[in-house]
Amino acid sequence: MIGLTAVIVTTAALEDGAAYAHMADSGWTYPPACCHGDQASGECQKIPSMTVTPRPDGYVVVLRPGDHRKVTHQNRYFVPYDVVIPSGDDNFHICLHPTEEHENCFFAPANAL
């Protein structure tokens, strides 16, 4: 019976940690399919709005070191409007996975959609 209790406690701790691992700094939760890791090492992070340029067919995002924790050199991403996810706050966010060259999820504030 002690083993079952340990499994339940461990599972609850993992579930709490997983929820925490996918939270933006402002407190809303990134979808688990977008963010792998935690707030220190995860792929999702708020990015400066000046790095995002709207075009007729989508957003162009240019990130440099310092704009996102995973970025080590300048990267350019194109995100069509039909794959943009509404942001949980008034900021742009991007998830880079499996490498910094790959945009996994992109979030835009409601007033920018």
Rank of each mutant, 00 (worst) to 15 (best):
V9P: 03
A18P: 03
L113G: 04
D67I: 00
G27W: 13
P56D: 09
H36G: 06
A19Q: 08
A33N: 01
C95P: 06
Y81Q: 00
C34L: 10
C34T: 06
C105R: 02
H93I: 05
R64H: 07
D57I: 01
P109W: 03
A13L: 15
D89W: 01
F106N: 00
V9T: 09
F78M: 04
I47N: 13
T10M: 08
P98V: 10
V52A: 11
V52C: 14
Y59N: 04
V52W: 08
E15W: 09
C35A: 12
C105M: 09
G88K: 00
L96N: 04
F106W: 04
A6R: 15
T53K: 15
G3D: 14
V9M: 11
P48G: 09
N91C: 06
H73L: 02
E43K: 11
G3C: 13
T29S: 15
D82R: 00
D89K: 02
E15H: 07
F107N: 07
G66N: 08
R55T: 15
R76Q: 12
V60N: 01
V62N: 09
L96Y: 06
A24R: 01
I85T: 09
P65E: 07
M50A: 14
C35M: 11
D67S: 07
P31R: 11
A18E: 15
L4I: 12
D25V: 12
Y20W: 15
M1K: 03
D67F: 01
A12V: 14
A21I: 01
S49K: 14
D38M: 02
A19N: 09
A40N: 13
P56H: 08
V84R: 01
P98Y: 10
F78I: 03
V9D: 08
P109K: 02
V9C: 12
T53R: 14
F78P: 00
I94Y: 04
P98I: 09
H22R: 15
H102K: 14
N91P: 00
H97K: 07
L63T: 05
A33P: 00
G66H: 10
T11L: 15
S49G: 12
F107C: 08
P31E: 09
Y81I: 02
C35F: 03
V9G: 05
M23T: 05
Y30D: 04
L113K: 04
D67N: 09
G37E: 03
V9R: 08
T11G: 12
G27K: 11
V9F: 12
V52F: 11
D16A: 14
P31W: 03
S87V: 06
E15N: 06
P32C: 10
T5M: 14
V84H: 02
M50Y: 12
V83H: 01
W28F: 06
H36S: 12
D90R: 02
L14W: 14
I2V: 14
G27H: 11
V71G: 12
A24K: 02
R64L: 07
I8S: 12
Y20P: 03
G27T: 11
P65A: 09
P31T: 06
D57V: 04
T99Y: 10
T5E: 13
A19G: 05
A13M: 13
L4H: 13
H36W: 08
P31D: 13
D89P: 06
A12F: 15
N91T: 04
G88A: 02
S49D: 15
E15R: 09
